[in-house]
Nucleic acid binder design. Sequence first.
DNA 1: ACCTAGACTTGATCTGGGTCAAGGGTTCGC
DNA 2: GCGAACCCTTGACCCAGATCAAGTCTAGGT
Lengths: 246, 246
Amino acid sequence: MNETLDLTIGCESCPIKHRAVCARCDADELETLDGIKYYRSFEAGQTVIWSGDRMEFVGSVVSGIASLTQTMEDGRTQMVGLLLPSDFVGRPGRETASYDVVATTDLVMCCFRRKPFEAMMVETPHVAQRLLEMTLDELDAAREWMLVLGRKTAREKIASLLSIIGRRDASLKLEGTIGKIVFDLPLTREAMADYLGLTLETVSRQMSALKRDGVIELQGKRHVTVPSFERLMDEAGDDADGGMMA
Amino acid sequence: MNETLDLTIGCESCPIKHRAVCARCDADELETLDGIKYYRSFEAGQTVIWSGDRMEFVGSVVSGIASLTQTMEDGRTQMVGLLLPSDFVGRPGRETASYDVVATTDLVMCCFRRKPFEAMMVETPHVAQRLLEMTLDELDAAREWMLVLGRKTAREKIASLLSIIGRRDASLKLEGTIGKIVFDLPLTREAMADYLGLTLETVSRQMSALKRDGVIELQGKRHVTVPSFERLMDEAGDDADGGMMA
DNA sequence: ACCTAGACTTGATCTGGGTCAAGGGTTCGC
DNA sequence: GCGAACCCTTGACCCAGATCAAGTCTAGGT
């Protein structure tokens, strides 16, 4: 786990310990990255980059949450990815962005100018390999989400989202308590709806239903307690260990 | 375009001209691949590999169509990817398969034993980089599909699927006629439903509706003529050049 | 203290697509 | 030529989730 993090593309001073240091070859790539990396901060609601814009940088999320969204001309929007701290943003080798990237909460990103980053990738194969692993993980996540979008009921969708956020949050805090999990929802009801392919009213109703049925407890609108994670997974319709393999 | 194909992982005798030859460095990797590659044939309906099984090989589709599907315990299934000739199958670096891979039509695959293939990847960085590009393309496709699954109506879903298959098919045949497109549907109504998150009855009804409205013509059940590709794209709800960028 | 705005909840009603059911067409083996 | 197995179509009905419409709750701002 820690060894994997060490191979993540990132930077020295991030609160999340992830650096472009390769455990295998003992080289420190930070040297080659210096001068091309910089930080960018965004307020909640700000757009980081618009779909179709020229992409000047790649980078990773340091703190906060960003989301990838696609919008149709008539305004229907679908969130196609949730970027949590340590997630990579951008696509080496492509000139323009394919989706809108929006700061869902206040957000800090660690960026690298794209061209020099691509050059470095060619010279340091293990960075490309690490990037491949990360991309394959994202692909798996996207495909798991396709099952959620295509076949699950509203209640199962909510439970799936809560279990993903809960798991990520718990593992970041290293408090992998079996059973009980506590976390703050970083998304508005509307953002949840956009991620799940629902309306915000349906999200609200199903949250109330899950609360009524004792699957979750709510302190305020955003603070969630899950008394039994197994129960939540069950509601999500996943087999018990489904997401643990990733 | 041709240069890209030359970099695709593949083999010498495939009907599709794709080989692991690197245009950049003039090396021919086939040499290192010999002895670890082999062919496998499957009949329509056969399962290539089950989710959770140990993955002994990676490879690419030579002819026919395979699909990646996920199934819930109660039998609901969602197709999460469609593999057309030249598409890569498998995940270097992972021991077990994440989805069922099913032969949708008769299928021939060109396979490489996974371990030696992984070893080769480490030694020949440009293969890893080509694989990264392909994976990023797949990720884009998966995310585009999330919009289809989450926000589009049944009619738009059908139109989206037809435009994807039609485009792929037309570009393979190099008959990129502007406007009119003719192709054979390689999927049953049920497979279409599984891909679109619909029931087969709804697929059938919407196909009839598109036919009634002159968006498509049907000769038999599977042979499709699209008189105006622009019209089809319009029905799909994409902006006109949406899928062309990929 | 009061006002406003954004985030959320809840109710009433409507509808797109699911479900159930009854066919039709083709292709196979016998 | 006949049944059987698929694959596909069409109709009738139903329901989960969308839509429309009031509200409530909370945090700021003045």
